[in-house]
Design a binder for these strands. Structure first.
Lengths: 203, 203, 203, 203
DNA sequence: TATGAATGAGATTTCATTCAT
DNA sequence: GATGAATGAAATCTCATTCAT
């Protein structure tokens, strides 16, 4: 009389679908992925997928949301015992260098960039993406401001501007890497970017 | 037998189709654009379009090729009477700052990024894109090497690496800009990037 | 072994499902109603519904049967102490005028008309509906014959024919009313129909 | 250079689709008819059908519109040389008796009744149907008023009310007939209805 | 060459029914 | 008996490409 499966079961199933979707979207792109690809990869029937998500677009959106949350949770956790702005930036760069080696992070990036491109043309998606973008911007802005207060970072740096540049560089680099796929070069590039960026902002 | 229409007529028609395609792809994305969008925009019939191009994909490819050629032709022309690497880099930055204000350049960028994303998953497109990518890489490599020889640029800079970074930054910036659409911020960002980049590579 | 639940419990549950189904079919139509609508309205699980009924179609059929029985039981009860054909007809008209004000009677009518339309194309439904139709026809035929014997109704009236007309008028009127929803007009129409009909059949 | 087919060609194709749709809707009902039924019956591809109509619903709507127009055109033509209200009513009854023998008129009726039922639940359809309904109501109202002026019809008759009743009877009769399919009875019923109706309204 | 009507494979989504718990 | 998650056939609609004129 209570075969209603546990909330945990449903959560896991949902995640299972999202993981398959990420894999498919990452491999073929959002538009090129068909529901049957996710069915095949997840081994979950078409109908069941639609029990968990309203549409292909919702899967996309939920995926983005979940990955974004995970990113900030991880960063917040690490930052908890870092005190200087310098340490926080260093940690961020470290994460990027390491992160992209994981296949699914790379796929997330592709998905995210495609969504960005795609979303810029649809008003309802724009809003969601803009919100996400602002979370990222604020994240760096806070570090920069903190660094300016502690004297680690030049006062004349505009936090908003440098934050936007930071993420543009990140996205550009990941975009190229996701196409080129050369890990070694990718890491060297990040080392250079880190040096260039820190040279520029540090006192 | 004379051909019914002149080669020039055909060339113009081709270009007309490509321009419409660029507009459509830029506005809605490659995948979301349907042939009828191009028909409507170009005022050329569907059948005629298929007389000039084999498929939607070919239109995409030709578009990319043409825009790439145009870019290099323009840059080569300008560079012809510039002698120093510094001047050439400055000119490049100047072009970016100015370029993206033009609607169709921005659209080209979107198309190009989408294609990049899309192409990374299809072997035949990869080759074409890789070739294009290398032309861009070589362009900066040549300037850097020239600058190192003339003593303008630090010897320890790796030309390949810095060239890849240069284009990654460019693409990231354009990607963000094409979504955010804030011209003023975009220009300020380019000023900062120029300063950061030149600080880093200059002697 | 005693059955786990009493027969009465089962009967009540069945009726509960039928009532919800009537509400849903009446509101959205048979075809447009999905099982989940009935689940939601009845608060009974999908599986349980299928324990009581074999299919959506069976629910429809049972509903029709039950409502038909109820109609005749009510009419028989009232007619028990009416002796003249005139009184019985008057009572019937009175019922119609009053009946349709009740929301669920109106819904029954819609369901019934839709079923009629729908059933005329499926042999197995035809039989069931034809039987139901004949019960209605006979009901009036009996009254007319009775009236002819007592001299209240003209001898030259064909009971079968007039009975068919009677129900056609009733259904047409309800059909229009279920669309137009104007109660006042509906009642006035019934007064006129009563007058017209009685004028015609009475001696 | 002008293979754009003639307007007449397109009109004919449109009609061809509508005729097939009428047949299918009439046989299986609107909801139960699938596009492939129309494809099969019309021998026109699915895509072509969607070139002429936006959706299944639009086909339905257009069908209704066309049949309504045809009905009034025919009636107006006949009425042109009829002067008395009595003649016009007689003509109308004559038409019903004859009309329904034609298979496609009967199908139109089914389609129309189903639409009525179905449409009463969808606001956008209600409007279209209400408009159609009013055309029918006005048609009889005009005849009645004319008859009252000429002294053929009783002054105390309410034209609106009697018009609504007229069409309700018509629809009820057709509804029953479309289910029962007995032509002979149908005609007899119409004779009786005519007599009953004229008795009631005539001076 | 140009036209645009026609094609039909293929995409997304729905929903009656089943069945493990 | 009750539950509701899972299934997958089937429906609507799209759109790249073809081809008769």
């Amino acid at each position: 009389m209570m075969p209603k499966v546990s909330a945990q079961y449903k959560e896991e199933k949902r995640n299972h679908i999202l993981e398959s979707a990420l894999k498919c979207f990452g491999e073929k792109g959002y538009q090129a992925t068909i529901i049957d690809d996710i069915v095949k990869d997840s081994n979950i029937s078409k109908g069941a997928i639609y029990n968990y998500f309203e549409s292909k677009e919702e899967i996309y959106l939920q995926l983005l949301k979940k990955r974004t949350n995970t990113f900030f949770e991880e960063m917040d956790e690490v930052n908890a015992h870092l005190t200087s702005a310098k340490q926080k930036l260093a940690n961020l760069f470290k994460r990027f260098k390491k992160q992209e080696l994981k296949e699914d992070d790379q796929q997330t990036m592709r998905v995210y960039i495609e969504f960005w491109l795609f979303g810029s043309r649809q008003e309802d998606l724009r809003k969601i993406l803009a919100e996400r973008y602002n979370r990222f911007i604020d994240y760096i802005v806070n570090i920069i401001v903190e660094g300016q207060q502690s004297g680690e970072i030049k006062k004349e740096i505009d936090p908003q501007n440098i934050s936007r540049i930071f993420w543009a560089i990140r996205d550009g680099n990941v975009l190229h890497y996701s196409f080129l796929g050369e890990e070694e070069q990718y890491r060297i590039a990040w080392d250079t970017i880190e040096e260039m960026f820190l040279n520029y902002v540090q006192q």
